[in-house]
């Protein structure tokens, strides 16, 4: 298509947006509603994931050492563990330190039982992972088990599994929600634009009669669809900002949860909204004219 035509048709598209401004308003409202719902789903997922990550941070592996291992040898073991690729941090807890913190947490009532023996607990090394994924942690645990002097590795396999499971469910659910909303907005936009087709049928039939290609006829509609999408993306990002910030304020009053700041996701959201808006707007408008393009004729007035 010639550049000149592109310019002309783009202007036509904008004229149509203004000419059918009620429909523009309707389409944008539909898109904004769907985007807000999608945005809420995304923010929820992000926040849940973020809080899971902090839970998992506490989810250490405890490497218990053989009784025969003395403090010097334990330092060697700790070095070997630190050298593993998936290990973020290690912390050596000697038998005495272990007994001390045990006493601190339960008090002194069992002192008699242990007869003041400060070595009744084995020495251990606390290990924090870099990557919490199952394959990487399990591999590292195997490697740790093979280090000489390691007696036993305790890690909460169960909790990690459950958390990963919940996370997967949430991810899948939000993908479905977003997909469903995308489909809904597409159908509604196609129908909204179709309402104005009565006025434009004549124009399309004349365009066909004077030899306009289908792409030429489609172009202004695509301009319209893209504009709907972008306007809706801007509005949705703004509205979601207002909603989310007031939510953060509310939550802060209760003080038990910390939500991720909007600024950390705003560009992902805006980018996602733009893509979704442009796709829904364009496909929606293309669906609504496809029927009219298929007809070869000038007699478009004869059918709806």
């Amino acid at each position: 298509m010639k550049l000149r035509s592109v310019r002309y048709l783009t202007v036509e598209g904008f004229k149509n947006i203004w000419l059918h401004r009620l429909m523009t308003l309707a389409s944008v409202c539909v898109l904004v509603s769907c985007m807000l719902l999608m945005g809420v789903a995304v923010l929820l997922t992000y926040n849940i994931q973020a809080s899971f990550v902090s839970v998992k941070d506490n989810n250490l592996a405890l490497v218990f050492l053989d009784d025969k291992v003395n403090d010097n040898e334990a330092v060697e073991v700790e070095k070997k563990i630190s050298a593993l690729s998936n290990v973020k941090k290690t912390e050596y807890v000697s038998r005495e330190q272990g007994a001390e913190s045990f006493r601190e947490s339960i008090g002194t009532m069992f002192d008699d039982l242990f007869e003041n023996d400060s070595t009744f607990l084995p020495a251990k090394i606390k290990v924090t992972w870099k990557d919490l994924s199952k394959t990487k942690t399990e591999k590292a645990i195997e490697q740790i088990k093979n280090i000489k002097g390691v007696y036993y590795v305790n890690y909460s396999k169960g909790l990690t599994k459950v958390l990963n499971g919940i996370q997967n469910v949430i991810n899948t659910a939000s993908i479905w929600i977003i997909g469903l909303l995308l489909f809904t907005s597409l159908v509604i936009i196609a129908n909204t634009i179709r309402i104005t087709m009565a006025a434009r049928k004549l124009e399309i039939s004349i365009m066909k009669a004077v030899g306009a290609t289908n792409n030429f006829i489609r172009f202004p509609f695509i301009v319209e669809g893209i504009t709907f999408g972008l306007i809706s993306a801007i509005i949705s990002t703004g509205v979601l900002y207002l909603i989310y910030n007031s939510t953060i304020d509310q939550v802060r009053q209760f003080g038990f949860l910390s939500l991720i700041p909007y600024s950390s996701v705003v560009w992902y959201l805006f980018g996602g909204f733009c893509i979704i808006g442009v796709v829904a707007g364009t496909i929606g408008s293309l669906i609504s004219i496809s029927k009219y393009l298929r007809k070869e004729g000038s007699e478009q007035n004869a059918f709806i």
Binding site: E203, I206, K208, A209, G211, A212, T213, F216, S298
Partner: peptide, 21 residues
């Protein structure tokens, strides 16, 4: 189908109901 527009450009069509926008 894609040749039809170019074919149509070789003819001028006049309608009974004028078909003006």
């Amino acid at each position: 189908r894609r040749e039809v527009p170019y074919f149509r450009r070789t003819m001028g069509i006049v309608f009974q109901d004028f078909r003006l926008i």
